[in-house]
């Protein structure tokens, strides 16, 4: 029988620390597959954040820099400018990228740094125990919004992908998910596009992946995916926000 699929050689044998049902494992797999398929293992530098994916460097067999909380885009800026022939990407959660790292993110986007940003948005702080993020939906209960997020107290959830899409330095913005085989295929295509943009020097690519955090949301993995489809997707609408094909640039 023909072998039609195998595990990426760039995924290490380390047992992932992520909760069962978490989206990070799937997204890591896609990142590893794309780097392998593009033949870029020796030419890729990843920047990991602070948050659940801080240990991304344990799972994908490439050179990694672990950045301070929120600063991944500044770190990646220097790496790409000093080694422009390399593929440079950041892998960040919503607390890291859209709260503490807002300034570094916006300005790397605005300068059009030739990096790819993988932005995993699960609307909560996972690693610190389920606190409210800037992306937490109104009404959503977290450890720091135990009665549910109220706009009058906490402000509103915001869509940083739409914000950065207005910046001239950004060539590609898309919002994807990984809760079904079809969604996984589309997310992989988006990651590939972003990585190709980095190599071609087309500007910054921003790939948001709306994800589940069943532990933080206090739901089973199946319930979490259902809740994500019913509650997250209407607010964080999937699809391309800014076209990134070479023809469009």
């Amino acid at each position: 029988m023909d072998k039609v699929y195998s595990r990426s050689a760039l995924l290490t044998d380390n047992v992932m620390h992520y909760c069962p049902g978490c989206s990070h494992g799937t997204i890591h797999k896609l990142v590893a597959e794309v780097i392998e398929e593009m033949g870029l293992q020796a030419d890729t530098i990843g920047v990991s954040p602070v948050g659940c994916s801080v240990f991304a460097y344990n799972y994908i067999d490439i050179d990694w820099i672990q950045a301070a909380h929120g600063r991944a885009c500044a770190v990646a800026t220097a790496v790409k400018r000093l080694t422009p022939e390399k593929m440079v990407f950041t892998y960040q959660g919503d607390g890291d990228l859209s709260a503490i790292g807002t300034a570094e993110t916006i300005h790397a986007c605005n300068r059009g740094e030739n990096i790819a940003v993988i932005y995993v948005n699960n609307a909560i702080y996972g690693m610190t125990g389920g606190q409210m993020a800037p992306t937490t939906l109104l009404g959503m209960k977290t450890a720091t919004s135990p009665q549910g997020r109220e706009a009058a107290i906490h402000g509103y959830p915001y869509k940083i992908a739409e914000m950065v899409s207005h910046l001239d330095g950004v060539c590609y913005v898309t919002r994807q998910s990984v809760q079904s085989p079809a969604a996984v295929r589309k997310a992989k295509k988006a990651i590939r596009q972003a990585f190709e943009n980095s190599m071609a020097g087309r500007g910054l690519s921003f790939v948001e992946i709306v994800s589940s955090c069943n532990s933080g949301w206090k739901l089973s993995p199946v319930e979490a995916n259902r809740w994500m489809e019913e509650s997250m997707f209407p607010f964080y609408k999937l699809g391309d926000i800014k076209a990134g094909t070479p023809a469009a640039i």
Binding site: I45, V47, I65, A67, A68, R71, A74, V75, A76, T77, A78, V79, L82, T83, A103, E104, H107
Partner: peptide, 13 residues
């Protein structure tokens, strides 16, 4: 803040 983190990235290389 960004400056020193850029230094961090460059130094790592």
């Amino acid at each position: 803040v960004a400056s020193i983190n850029m230094v961090y990235g460059g130094a790592a290389c």
